[in-house]
Simulated assay, not measured.
Amino acid sequence: MANEILRMQKISLKEAIEEIENFKGWLYLSPPPWSVESEGFFYSTDVDLLPVDEKKIRDEFEAQGWKSTVSKEDIEDIIENTKNQIEDPSIDQLFEAFNFFYENDAYIEW
């Protein structure tokens, strides 16, 4: 199972936000506190695995310190919501909106 993590494409949170169209699945990040440079990866469920085996993989990610955060679709919605309120949001504003959503399960009001 540790090999599963080795095969994951590591990216920064900044890349996840700025290039969200290139990813799918759930974003796992290194332990908080997070910055735009925090390392992470996206993981998509393997539909060919039994649910119990799939859960083992996700549990192993967590055991190694990776934190499951939000889905690609959530990040797209966070970006869209922020852009609806701020014409050209900075990466820092998008990062703040990401953190707010993660902590509150709600969109930030600017």
Score class of each variant (00 low, 15 high):
Ser38Asn: 07
Glu54Arg: 11
Phe41Ser: 09
Met8Glu: 14
Arg7Ile: 08
Tyr107Met: 10
Val36Gly: 07
Glu80Ala: 06
Ser44Pro: 02
Asp46Pro: 00
Val36Ile: 10
Glu18Phe: 05
Thr69Asn: 04
Leu94Tyr: 09
Pro32Ser: 10
Ser44His: 08
Asn84Phe: 01
Ser90Cys: 04
Glu4Pro: 00
Glu87Cys: 00
Gly65Trp: 11
Leu13Asn: 12
Glu37Val: 01
Ala63Met: 13
Val52Ser: 14
Glu96Arg: 08
Lys10Gln: 11
Trp26Glu: 10
Tyr107Gly: 03
Leu49Asp: 12
Val70Arg: 04
Val52Glu: 15
Glu39Ala: 00
Lys14Ser: 12
Ala63Lys: 15
Gln64Glu: 06
Glu18Trp: 04
Thr45Lys: 15
Asp92Ile: 00
Leu29Pro: 05
Trp26His: 08
Ile108Ser: 12
Tyr107Asn: 12
Pro89Asn: 05
Ser30Ala: 15
Lys72His: 07
Ser71Leu: 01
Glu62Val: 05
Glu54Ile: 01
Glu21Thr: 11
Glu37Gln: 14
Gln85Met: 04
Glu60Met: 10
Pro32Leu: 06
Gln93Lys: 04
Glu62Leu: 01
Ala2His: 10
Asn81Phe: 02
Leu6Lys: 10
Glu37Ile: 02
Glu60Gln: 11
Leu6Gly: 08
Tyr102Gly: 09
Gly25Ser: 06
Ile78Arg: 13
Ser12Pro: 04
Val47Met: 13
Glu80Ser: 08
Ser35Thr: 09
Ala63Glu: 15
Lys83Pro: 01
Ile17Gly: 07
Val70Ser: 04
Glu62Met: 06
Ser68Trp: 01
Gln85Gly: 02
Trp110Gln: 05
Phe61Gly: 07
Glu80Val: 03
Val70Thr: 02
Lys56Asp: 13
Lys10Phe: 02
Ile17Ala: 11
Asn99Tyr: 11
Pro31Ser: 10
Leu49Ala: 10
Ser38Ile: 00
Asn22Phe: 07
Leu13Val: 07
Ile79Glu: 13
Asn99Met: 14
Phe61Gln: 09
Leu50Arg: 15
